[in-house]
Design a protein around this nucleic acid. Structure first.
Lengths: 296, 296
DNA sequence: GATTACACATGACAAATATCGATCAAGGCA
DNA sequence: TGCCTTGATCGATATTTGTCATGTGTAATC
């Protein structure tokens, strides 16, 4: 009979497992969950003992999860989804209204999609309209009242008290190791398109520091920039996610790039209960996992 | 921040909620779960505190669950389904083979349907073929090796050590209050059809006790018998589930009806790992909830 | 209207279990 | 090699969870 009490999956343990996958490691997961590393380690251990099988491989080089771990991870995702939806549904208040939401392309394939889907399900009377644009464009639309809120990239020092920070990110100057940087001549710059707001920073600051950047390549997608960097076309500003092994971070000679943050920024509209709820759900998800996970 | 740790649904608590619905009350649920009544009461209380809303109405006469309770119950069912499936999937052993299973009509709409569905999903390489027949027929098929196992109704004293008891049931002689029972003449008997094994008991025992039963009505479905009893056509043998307010249980004048049990009875086949697993899953479900629930 | 039976709530306490901080072991990397 | 990061482990607390004993409210019975 004790067999059955021991064979029970704790919600918290499943969430820990999930966080380990999301954050790539026990220590980081613990941090995100607001627990100590040993607590998370123990949680997984208990889970493994109660299931009598290994979930993490603990072998360096190999994948982090065993087959059983991956298997359980799949169930964990579904169980947690239902669990969180159950929690929300108990506090729902038959919401109705409209929400016009702006997103950057980067964030569409993160947890946000999941949250938005759930929000639709829980509040069928709220019409959510989303627009995907670049951060600068979204900010303009916010200003003009065309959006109720948007998820935009901003400089870390520009984060407003009313913004909800999803995650922070560092920018790096990168180049291919083989590309020499001459001190005098203009530096070849690989740039996102015109509306990319840190491209503007690069061109402005560049002038202050006496460094001259010459845009030799312009591409709207990160993939294009990455390809251009690895083929040695020039230097670029990339965030940590896009760093590749064959890229070299330029430590000196260029002004230190600013830190970035992805935030939920609200428009000027006075009252919008549906938006309040949506933002609250995003916030809750963030504090539960210590930030949103990016698509891997 | 502590708000989020407190807002967490324990699997055990959800199972308790589910058991309360299944067994119709905290005390019975506690018994089924192998816990004390106060433990279950506490569990629900904690759940309510953490959710900050009432789940059980505690008002006599009213429904047992509040709206929020019903809401959560729905999620609980789905979460527990996933949870249990996750547990099973981790111990699955890529089963293959064939199982020929017999069922009585009564049991098709119980938890068994759910268990069979899950079994199919978890073991797609096992072909499960089910046949719905009356208990006596199923027993014959078991004898002849046409079935690997069957869920049949048997007299409680005929339960074999190898049988897995799903639940037990009492039979009652019932009649309409207005129907007089003459001591001398034959008693009008409302019977299931010929293959109903306790109809045979009724006719046999009837003769021993000097009581003469005359079958005045024959119908394969319980609903038909119920209708016949309430219209005063005669007496019948019915199980507790089919008792109605306007029926009178006949305490004397007729031999005490035997107790019944629904059991999983296996056929003679030597080895069948797929069947072993299926029976094990049914057993596990039983001990988890203290018996299978009937359709309400 | 007292009484009994029943189902549930509640409080105190004991046992189990989770968490933390500190420490330890192992691998990756300069 | 020595440093640094990551995760395992240990002992000490803190929290959770169950049980027992008891209290409360409701209905049925005399």
């Amino acid at each position: 009979m004790t067999e059955f009490t021991s064979r029970r999956l704790e919600i918290d343990a499943l969430r820990a497992l999930w966080a380990i996958r999301h954050h790539g490691g026990i220590t980081r997961a613990a941090e995100a969950l607001g627990l100590s590393q040993s607590a998370v380690s123990h949680k997984i251990k208990r889970l493994e003992t109660s299931l009598d099988c290994d979930l993490l491989s603990r072998k360096p080089g190999a994948a982090m999860f065993t087959a059983a771990g991956e298997d359980l991870l799949d169930y964990a995702g579904r169980i947690l989804g239902l669990h969180d939806e159950a929690l929300l549904s108990l506090s729902k208040t038959s919401l109705a209204g409209r929400v016009a939401l702006g997103l950057t392309e980067d964030t569409t394939c993160t947890d946000l999609a999941r949250i938005l889907g759930r929000f639709r399900r829980l509040h069928p009377n709220v019409s959510v309209r989303t627009k995907v644009r670049m951060s600068l464009v979204l900010r303009g639309m916010l200003e003009r009242g065309e959006l109720d809120a948007a998820i935009v990239q901003v400089f870390a020092h520009e984060v407003r008290p009313t913004d909800v920070v999803l995650f922070r990110e560092a920018l790096h100057w990168v180049k291919h190791p083989d590309l020499p940087l001459s001190q005098d001549g203009p530096i070849p710059f690989l740039s996102f398109d015109d509306e990319c707001f840190y491209r503007r920073w690069a061109l402005d600051i560049g002038q202050d520091g006496g460094v001259v950047l010459e845009t030799v390549f312009e591409c709207a997608s990160a993939a294009g920039i990455v390809a251009a960097v690895t083929s040695g076309l020039g230097v670029a500003l990339l965030n940590g996610r896009h760093l590749q092994p064959d890229m070299e971070i330029i430590a000196k000679g260029l002004p230190a790039p600013p830190a970035l943050a992805y935030v939920v920024r609200r428009g000027r509209k006075v009252r919008n209960p549906a938006l309040d709820t949506l933002v609250a759900e995003i916030e809750s998800e963030i504090s539960r996992y210590g930030g949103l996970a990016l698509a891997s």
